[in-house]
Structures are given as C-alpha cells and as structure tokens.
Write a protein that binds this DNA or RNA. Structure first.
Lengths: 251, 251
DNA sequence: GCAAAAGTGTTCAATCTACACCCATGG
DNA sequence: CCATGGGTGTAGATTGAACACTTTTGC
C-alpha cells in the first residue's frame, strides 16, 4: 500500500515526504502457524503489505507506528526497522499502472519510491484488521499461503522474515506475539512457526527458563483436552534487561 | 555531507530524490586501530561523515557505492546498509544554519532529511581521501578521537559501529579491510580493534582456521623485528560460502 | 480406559576457555 | 645475546543435542 503518492491523494497527502514510503510486515501467531497481515486492493485480486507515507512532521518510526495502529488498532507493539528498499525499479511500473489506473493517477508511476521496511509482532487475538481507502480486505495469511504480492512486497516480506529469524536468535521474543498468559508448548510452537523447524521440548524449556524471561504461574490452563499445561507470563523487567544486554541465546 | 539539497547545488543536483540522503561510515584499519574517514567542512572547524543524495536513476546501494568511490577512490568494497535515520529533527537546524549559511541556501534547513546509513570496510593503504565541494579535508580519525560531528552523525557512526560488531559475530570480515597478504596477528588486531577487546591468540587462530576462510602461504613476512610471522590470504570462494550460509562463528 | 498432549533428566559430544613455553628475528 | 613478538597444544568446564517414559485430562 505504500505506493500512493502525494499527487494521488487529496486531503491528507500534501504534507508527506515525496518518494519515500514505509511498508510493514505484520506477523501474528495462531493455530501453531505464523501469519502475515495482507491487504487486498479494491477491484483487484491482488494483495500488498500495509504501508504508507511519512508525514513531514513525524519521524519514520512514528509513521510506522501510525500505519500499524491504523491497520490493526494496536499500539505499543514490537516494531523493528529492518531494511530500506531502494532499487530504481522496485516493480514493473507499466503492468502496475494498468492494474491500478482506476484509483491512482498516472504520475504515481513515474516517480520511483524508496521504501523503509518494518516488521511487527502482534498478538493475533487482539488485532482488528482494518482496510484503508485503497483496499477492501485486510486479512491474515499463513506464511506458506502468501500469494504473489504487488510491488516488490514479496521481497520485503522475505527479508523481514529473515530479519525476524535472525533477531530471534539473540533476543527474547514473544512479549507482543503471545497472549498475556501462555503455556510452554504455546511458546515453543511460536518459535517453531517462526523458525520453521521442530524443537525438542525438554531442551527448549531448559533454555527458556535459564534466560529467566518467563515466570511460571500457579495456575494451569483448564478446559483443554489432555493434561493441563502450566501457564506462564513474561517477567517484563528481566525481559527488557535481556533485550538490552543482547543476551545472546540460540534456539 | 548528506545535508545538501537539490536547491543548494547547481548542475548535478536537480535529479536527486528530495529529502532523502545517505551517509557512509567508512572504516579502515591501521596501526592496530580502527579508523573512520571524516570530512572537514570549508570555513568551519567541524566534521561530518561522507554522504550524498540519491539520483533519480540510481539505486540507493549504487548511490552509496558512488559516494564511497568519490571519497576514497575505491570500488568493489564491502558495503552494508545498516539503518535509516528518520527523526524529524536530526539536528539543531538553527545552529547549523548559522554555521553553514556561507555555503548553503536557507531553504536547505527548512526541509527535514531522512538519511540511510551505510558502513564500509576498506583497505586503509589503498584509499586516497578526496574531499568534495563542501569540504576541504578528508582524513582518517581514530575511533576514540572522533570529535563532535555535524548533524546527527555521531549517532550514525555509533550505530554503524554497533552493526559492524554484531555482523562480525556471525560473518567473516576482513576481505576488504586487510591487505591482500596479512599475518594472523594482523587479523587478530583487526578483530581486537573492532570489538575493542583482547583475544587469546591460540583460540583466535583455531577459530579462524576452522572456518577455512584463510589459506596459509608458503611465505613469511620478512624485515620485521622478531620472529617472522606466516602470511595468509583469504580463500575467497570459501569466504563467500561462509558469508552466504551465515556460518555463524563467534569471537 | 484410552487417546493425546504435557512434563521431566541424563548421557554423550562438541565447543569454549584458560593457560605457558619455546622459537626466530633484528637490533 | 637479548628483547620482543610469533607460534603452538592440552585439560577442564560449559554448552548443546539426542533421547523415552510417566502423568493427566477429556472424551
């Protein structure tokens, strides 16, 4: 969605930085799988990442927070800038122009746009997807089901996923991706979904507990079939310490 | 140097992306210390990182290569984008305007600029520092001697250094920072300079040799006092493999 | 009572860390 | 010949990987 332009809009669009956008890869976690939030464009069968332009009086980070809030209703979430995409031709302008001519002016396609990529980790349950004026659907997709996206958004998504996986290796993750109370298997499934590989539950638990980022509660999760698992919550103080120390730990 | 603008220049400047610049933290290595290339501005006692704007018909990466080539004469070097700096006020516009009013138009300071940070690792011996039209000196500085820089360039420098240190932890480094033939102590001193810590020479050698990225030559370095050290060169094929595999190795 | 997921400990291998002495060279 | 930096191996500690059985629950 980032490829709108100051010439295309009307009211809210004269005060943005031209030729510079941002795009967000918004990850959520549900049913043991990693999901991404995609927007379906009006009148098209095609999808893109949520994105937008940077206003003259807001920082790029704030713009990302705004886009995220607009699309998911969430703020105070985990958001990381991971790369800026600056190729001259980030997509086939001509083909795109045909597809989008019903809602964007011609000039939009004459100017290249540099886009700053962010990824976010959000609590799937708390998100209320909310399309914008160019799009009519805003939906979660399983990573493996992600279709071909508009612009170079498949590249952005892949690079964002790579950055997330790398970051996972030396920073704690989960505070914004899991619900407040969660079980150890929940957390393990999150790691497995992100890394796309199986992890041994004994070794996993040992590692996580050693970091001290989680606290076991006195409750167990009831109402599930089979043995009731313990509930945990994050020790936010410790979590932040580990984040800042870069307390390298690998899964 | 990135804060010039299409309005400030004359000939070469109308075809750049407005409000978007790039800045390069150029690291070199000499006398066991890590150096950074800084530019001194004409008529001022102040310094900045080398930087520039992105032309409409070049990619951001190409623009960084160009800036690097202009300032150092080098190409085919190691260059990495590490962060995009997008605060609204990246520096004190008013103070800066006073300092630079003799060579930049007033409007330059009215528009904020977002800057993409790159760091480069170059062979100190092969660089011919070359100031640009805003600057009259282009010199290497020891990291610890870096003065207060213009704009937010101290921030950019620090973040670039941090990114380099992190990258050092899981990627081979040195191909562009050391001369073609080097000794194991040379390489160790490079790591020590970058990480700013002492490393045990036996453990260091073991680790480096295990990765296979260097090949011991049949020659030794002559003409130095004390025992002649062996010379090594990089096994470039293996080096690139390890780079791509992200063959995590820690020092 | 049975099917399915949760919980838990040990062993072995690999890796990391710490550490000290002899050697070769130029001066 | 001596001062200086280069070269090298081992032992102990730590960490990582592999692995299986018992428990609890809902149905």
């Amino acid at each position: 969605m980032s490829e709108k332009n100051k010439k295309s809009g009307a009211d809210d669009s004269l005060d943005v930085i031209p030729q510079l956008s941002l795009d967000c890869v918004i990850f959520g976690f549900h049913d043991s799988t990693l999901k991404v939030l995609l927007l379906k464009w009006k009148g098209l069968e095609e999808y893109s990442l949520p994105g937008g332009f940077v206003k003259q009086d807001e920082s790029v980070d704030d713009a990302a927070v705004r886009v995220l809030k607009e699309r998911t209703g969430l703020d105070k979430i985990f958001l990381r800038q991971f790369h800026t995409f600056g190729k001259v031709k980030r997509y086939d302008n001509l083909a795109l122009q045909k597809k989008l001519s019903h809602m964007l002016d011609e000039e939009v396609f004459q100017e290249r746009v540099v886009s700053i990529g962010y990824y976010a980790l959000v609590d799937y349950e708390k998100v209320f997807p909310n399309p914008d004026k160019f799009t009519d659907k805003c939906e979660w997709y399983d990573l493996i089901d992600v279709p071909e996206l508009l612009f170079d958004h498949n590249d952005i998504l892949n690079k964002g996923l790579k950055a997330l996986r790398l970051e996972l290796s030396f920073q704690p993750i989960g505070l914004n991706l899991l619900p407040e109370k969660f079980t150890m298997p929940d957390m393990q499934r999150m790691y497995e979904a992100i890394l796309d590989k199986k992890i041994d539950p004994r070794n996993f638990q040992k590692k996580i507990l050693k970091t001290g980022i989680v606290i076991r509660l006195k409750e167990v999760k009831k109402g599930v079939a089979h043995k009731s698992p313990y509930l945990y919550k994050f020790d936010q103080k410790r979590y932040k310490e580990v984040l800042e120390d870069g307390g390298l730990f690998f899964i």
